[in-house]
Simulated assay, not measured.
Amino acid sequence: MAETPYRTALIVGAGSGISASLARALAAAGLKVGLVARDVGKLAALANETGAMTFAADASDPVAVATLFEQVDASLGEPDLVIYNASARVRGPLAEIDPEAVRQAVAVTAFGGFLVAQQAARRMVPHGRGAILFTGATAGIKGFPASAAFAMGKFALRGLAQSAARELGPQGIHVVHFVIDGAVRSGTRPDPEDRPDSTLSPDGIAQAYLAALQQPRNAWSSEIELRPWLETF
Protein backbone atom coordinates (compact mmCIF):
# COMPACT_ATOMS: atom_id res chain seq x y z
CA MET A 1 0.00 0.00 0.00
CA ALA A 2 1.23 3.49 -0.82
CA GLU A 3 2.54 5.70 1.95
CA THR A 4 0.21 8.36 3.33
CA PRO A 5 1.78 11.60 2.03
CA TYR A 6 0.93 13.75 5.06
CA ARG A 7 2.66 14.36 8.37
CA THR A 8 0.35 16.26 10.72
CA ALA A 9 -3.38 15.58 11.10
CA LEU A 10 -6.04 17.57 12.92
CA ILE A 11 -9.39 15.90 13.65
CA VAL A 12 -12.10 18.39 14.61
CA GLY A 13 -15.10 16.96 16.41
CA ALA A 14 -13.16 14.07 17.92
CA GLY A 15 -14.68 11.44 20.14
CA SER A 16 -15.43 7.74 20.04
CA GLY A 17 -16.37 5.98 16.83
CA ILE A 18 -15.13 7.23 13.48
CA SER A 19 -12.74 9.88 14.78
CA ALA A 20 -11.19 7.48 17.32
CA SER A 21 -10.55 4.92 14.59
CA LEU A 22 -9.08 7.65 12.39
CA ALA A 23 -6.77 8.79 15.19
CA ARG A 24 -5.48 5.25 15.68
CA ALA A 25 -5.01 4.64 11.96
CA LEU A 26 -3.25 7.95 11.35
CA ALA A 27 -0.97 7.51 14.34
CA ALA A 28 -0.12 3.99 13.17
CA ALA A 29 0.75 5.46 9.76
CA GLY A 30 3.28 7.74 11.46
CA LEU A 31 1.37 11.03 11.50
CA LYS A 32 1.31 13.43 14.40
CA VAL A 33 -2.32 13.79 15.46
CA GLY A 34 -4.30 16.60 17.08
CA LEU A 35 -7.77 15.97 18.50
CA VAL A 36 -10.31 18.78 18.91
CA ALA A 37 -13.48 18.74 20.98
CA ARG A 38 -15.42 21.05 23.26
CA ASP A 39 -14.78 18.65 26.15
CA VAL A 40 -11.22 17.35 25.90
CA GLY A 41 -11.63 15.32 29.08
CA LYS A 42 -13.37 12.62 27.07
CA LEU A 43 -10.30 12.34 24.81
CA ALA A 44 -7.76 11.47 27.52
CA ALA A 45 -7.70 7.72 26.94
CA LEU A 46 -7.56 8.06 23.15
CA ALA A 47 -4.80 10.67 23.37
CA ASN A 48 -2.79 8.42 25.65
CA GLU A 49 -3.26 5.47 23.29
CA THR A 50 -2.29 7.35 20.12
CA GLY A 51 0.14 9.96 21.45
CA ALA A 52 -2.18 12.67 20.15
CA MET A 53 -2.39 16.21 21.48
CA THR A 54 -5.80 17.54 22.51
CA PHE A 55 -7.29 20.98 21.96
CA ALA A 56 -10.53 22.48 23.27
CA ALA A 57 -12.59 24.59 20.86
CA ASP A 58 -16.12 25.39 19.74
CA ALA A 59 -16.00 24.70 15.99
CA SER A 60 -18.90 27.07 15.32
CA ASP A 61 -17.09 30.11 16.79
CA PRO A 62 -14.84 32.00 14.31
CA VAL A 63 -12.56 33.39 17.03
CA ALA A 64 -12.24 30.00 18.72
CA VAL A 65 -11.35 28.27 15.44
CA ALA A 66 -8.73 30.90 14.54
CA THR A 67 -7.23 30.56 18.02
CA LEU A 68 -7.31 26.77 17.73
CA PHE A 69 -5.21 26.77 14.56
CA GLU A 70 -2.71 29.18 16.10
CA GLN A 71 -2.35 26.80 19.05
CA VAL A 72 -1.95 23.82 16.76
CA ASP A 73 0.66 25.63 14.66
CA ALA A 74 2.69 26.43 17.77
CA SER A 75 2.50 23.10 19.57
CA LEU A 76 2.00 20.45 16.87
CA GLY A 77 2.97 22.18 13.64
CA GLU A 78 0.85 23.35 10.73
CA PRO A 79 -1.54 20.52 9.84
CA ASP A 80 -1.35 19.29 6.26
CA LEU A 81 -4.37 17.03 6.83
CA VAL A 82 -7.57 18.37 8.41
CA ILE A 83 -10.66 16.23 9.03
CA TYR A 84 -14.00 17.79 9.95
CA ASN A 85 -16.09 15.28 11.88
CA ALA A 86 -18.28 17.58 14.01
CA SER A 87 -22.04 17.62 13.68
CA ALA A 88 -25.18 18.22 15.72
CA ARG A 89 -28.65 16.73 15.52
CA VAL A 90 -31.99 18.17 16.56
CA ARG A 91 -34.98 15.91 16.09
CA GLY A 92 -38.60 16.95 16.02
CA PRO A 93 -41.59 17.83 13.82
CA LEU A 94 -40.98 20.79 11.54
CA ALA A 95 -43.89 22.72 13.03
CA GLU A 96 -42.64 22.29 16.58
CA ILE A 97 -38.85 22.25 16.54
CA ASP A 98 -37.02 25.06 18.37
CA PRO A 99 -35.58 27.52 15.81
CA GLU A 100 -32.62 28.42 18.01
CA ALA A 101 -31.71 24.75 18.42
CA VAL A 102 -31.80 24.40 14.63
CA ARG A 103 -29.58 27.48 14.24
CA GLN A 104 -27.02 26.01 16.63
CA ALA A 105 -27.10 22.59 14.96
CA VAL A 106 -26.51 24.02 11.50
CA ALA A 107 -23.73 26.22 12.91
CA VAL A 108 -21.86 23.16 14.19
CA THR A 109 -22.51 20.85 11.25
CA ALA A 110 -21.96 23.29 8.37
CA PHE A 111 -20.66 26.71 9.44
CA GLY A 112 -18.01 25.06 11.59
CA GLY A 113 -16.90 23.07 8.57
CA PHE A 114 -16.45 26.31 6.65
CA LEU A 115 -14.46 27.92 9.47
CA VAL A 116 -12.14 24.95 9.81
CA ALA A 117 -11.69 24.57 6.05
CA GLN A 118 -10.90 28.27 5.74
CA GLN A 119 -8.15 28.11 8.35
CA ALA A 120 -6.79 24.92 6.78
CA ALA A 121 -6.77 26.45 3.29
CA ARG A 122 -4.91 29.53 4.51
CA ARG A 123 -2.11 27.24 5.64
CA MET A 124 -2.14 24.77 2.75
CA VAL A 125 -2.47 27.05 -0.27
CA PRO A 126 0.96 28.70 0.16
CA HIS A 127 2.56 25.23 0.21
CA GLY A 128 0.55 23.91 -2.74
CA ARG A 129 -0.38 20.71 -0.91
CA GLY A 130 -2.62 19.29 1.80
CA ALA A 131 -5.91 17.46 2.31
CA ILE A 132 -9.26 18.45 3.81
CA LEU A 133 -11.76 15.68 4.53
CA PHE A 134 -15.41 16.15 5.49
CA THR A 135 -17.52 13.48 7.21
CA GLY A 136 -20.98 13.58 5.69
CA ALA A 137 -24.04 11.38 6.10
CA THR A 138 -27.06 9.98 4.30
CA ALA A 139 -28.80 13.19 5.39
CA GLY A 140 -26.59 15.11 2.96
CA ILE A 141 -28.16 13.15 0.09
CA LYS A 142 -31.78 12.95 1.25
CA GLY A 143 -33.65 14.57 4.11
CA PHE A 144 -35.67 12.42 6.48
CA PRO A 145 -38.86 13.27 8.42
CA ALA A 146 -38.37 15.09 11.72
CA SER A 147 -34.69 15.64 10.87
CA ALA A 148 -34.70 18.99 9.05
CA ALA A 149 -31.80 20.48 11.03
CA PHE A 150 -29.45 17.58 10.33
CA ALA A 151 -30.38 17.52 6.65
CA MET A 152 -29.82 21.27 6.35
CA GLY A 153 -26.40 21.01 7.95
CA LYS A 154 -25.22 17.98 5.98
CA PHE A 155 -26.52 19.30 2.65
CA ALA A 156 -24.62 22.54 3.31
CA LEU A 157 -21.48 20.63 4.28
CA ARG A 158 -21.66 18.67 1.04
CA GLY A 159 -22.01 21.90 -0.95
CA LEU A 160 -19.02 23.34 0.87
CA ALA A 161 -16.97 20.25 0.03
CA GLN A 162 -17.91 20.41 -3.66
CA SER A 163 -17.00 24.08 -3.90
CA ALA A 164 -13.76 23.59 -1.98
CA ALA A 165 -12.74 20.62 -4.13
CA ARG A 166 -13.20 22.60 -7.33
CA GLU A 167 -11.37 25.63 -5.96
CA LEU A 168 -8.56 24.01 -4.02
CA GLY A 169 -7.91 20.87 -6.06
CA PRO A 170 -6.05 22.75 -8.82
CA GLN A 171 -3.94 24.31 -6.05
CA GLY A 172 -2.74 20.90 -4.87
CA ILE A 173 -5.18 20.38 -2.00
CA HIS A 174 -7.18 17.16 -1.99
CA VAL A 175 -10.73 17.72 -0.73
CA VAL A 176 -12.96 14.71 -0.14
CA HIS A 177 -16.53 14.45 1.17
CA PHE A 178 -17.44 11.06 2.66
CA VAL A 179 -21.09 10.00 2.69
CA ILE A 180 -21.47 7.68 5.67
CA ASP A 181 -24.57 5.95 4.34
CA GLY A 182 -25.65 3.65 7.15
CA ALA A 183 -25.54 3.07 10.89
CA VAL A 184 -22.07 3.09 12.43
CA ARG A 185 -21.25 0.17 14.73
CA SER A 186 -20.46 0.92 18.38
CA GLY A 187 -20.45 -0.69 21.78
CA THR A 188 -24.05 0.36 22.29
CA ARG A 189 -25.09 -0.44 18.70
CA PRO A 190 -23.58 -3.81 17.73
CA ASP A 191 -24.54 -5.82 14.67
CA PRO A 192 -27.65 -7.97 15.13
CA GLU A 193 -26.67 -11.63 15.45
CA ASP A 194 -28.72 -12.55 12.38
CA ARG A 195 -27.25 -9.72 10.25
CA PRO A 196 -23.44 -9.71 10.61
CA ASP A 197 -21.64 -6.73 9.07
CA SER A 198 -24.94 -4.92 8.59
CA THR A 199 -23.49 -1.75 10.14
CA LEU A 200 -20.45 0.28 9.17
CA SER A 201 -17.29 -0.53 11.07
CA PRO A 202 -15.47 2.61 12.31
CA ASP A 203 -12.17 0.90 11.56
CA GLY A 204 -13.37 0.10 8.05
CA ILE A 205 -14.35 3.74 7.56
CA ALA A 206 -10.90 4.83 8.72
CA GLN A 207 -9.30 2.47 6.19
CA ALA A 208 -11.32 4.11 3.42
CA TYR A 209 -10.18 7.58 4.53
CA LEU A 210 -6.54 6.51 4.48
CA ALA A 211 -6.95 4.89 1.07
CA ALA A 212 -8.31 8.18 -0.30
CA LEU A 213 -5.30 10.02 1.11
CA GLN A 214 -3.01 7.68 -0.82
CA GLN A 215 -4.63 8.40 -4.19
CA PRO A 216 -2.33 9.95 -6.81
CA ARG A 217 -3.39 13.43 -7.84
CA ASN A 218 -4.10 12.22 -11.38
CA ALA A 219 -6.93 10.10 -9.95
CA TRP A 220 -8.38 11.97 -6.96
CA SER A 221 -11.83 11.26 -5.57
CA SER A 222 -13.88 14.21 -4.39
CA GLU A 223 -16.79 12.22 -2.93
CA ILE A 224 -16.89 8.67 -1.61
CA GLU A 225 -19.98 6.83 -0.36
CA LEU A 226 -19.51 4.16 2.28
CA ARG A 227 -22.17 1.68 3.27
CA PRO A 228 -22.34 -1.90 4.57
CA TRP A 229 -23.07 -4.58 2.01
CA LEU A 230 -26.67 -5.01 3.24
CA GLU A 231 -27.55 -1.31 3.26
CA THR A 232 -30.23 -0.27 0.75
CA PHE A 233 -29.75 2.88 -1.33
Rank of each mutant, 00 (worst) to 15 (best):
S186I: 08
E78V: 13
A165E: 13
W220P: 12
A74L: 06
A86P: 03
A110R: 04
S147D: 13
S60G: 12
V63N: 03
V184W: 05
H174E: 09
R38W: 03
F150D: 08
S87A: 15
A137N: 12
V125I: 15
G113T: 07
V72H: 02
P99R: 08
L26M: 11
V36W: 01
T199C: 06
S201A: 11
I11K: 01
S75E: 14
A88L: 08
K154M: 08
A9R: 00
D39Q: 09
S21P: 07
A56K: 08
P99G: 01
L76G: 05
D181L: 01
D197K: 10
H127F: 10
L210P: 02
A165L: 14
N218F: 09
R103Q: 13
L226A: 06
V108K: 11
G204S: 08
P62R: 10
N218Q: 15
A52M: 01
E167N: 04
I205V: 14
L31S: 03
P126T: 12
V33M: 05
R129A: 13
V179M: 08
R166P: 02
A151I: 05
V102R: 07
N218V: 09
P79T: 06
R166A: 14
K32R: 15
P190I: 06
V175N: 05
L133T: 02
V72N: 02
T8M: 05
L68Y: 08
A206R: 00
F69E: 00
A161T: 07
I224D: 07
S147H: 09
H127W: 03
L94V: 15
N48A: 14
A121H: 11
H127P: 00
G140K: 02
E231G: 00
D203V: 03
A101H: 12
V106I: 14
V175Y: 08
A27W: 02
H127N: 11
A165T: 09
A23C: 01
L160Y: 04
Q171W: 05
A74G: 15
E49V: 05
D197N: 15
D98Y: 03
P170Q: 13
E225A: 12
I141K: 13
K142F: 14
V12R: 00
Q207M: 06
W229I: 06
L76S: 06
F155S: 02
V36K: 00
Y84L: 11
A165N: 14
P228A: 03
I173A: 03
I205P: 00
T138L: 14
V33G: 04
R122G: 15
A52R: 00
P126G: 08
F155R: 00
R91M: 11
G15F: 02
A121G: 03
E3P: 00
L26I: 03
G140R: 00
D80Y: 10
H174D: 12
A151V: 06
A45M: 07
V65D: 04
R129V: 11
S60P: 03
G187I: 10
D191A: 04
L115F: 03
D203C: 00
G34C: 07
I132C: 04
R38K: 14
G130W: 09
L115N: 04
A86F: 11
V63I: 10
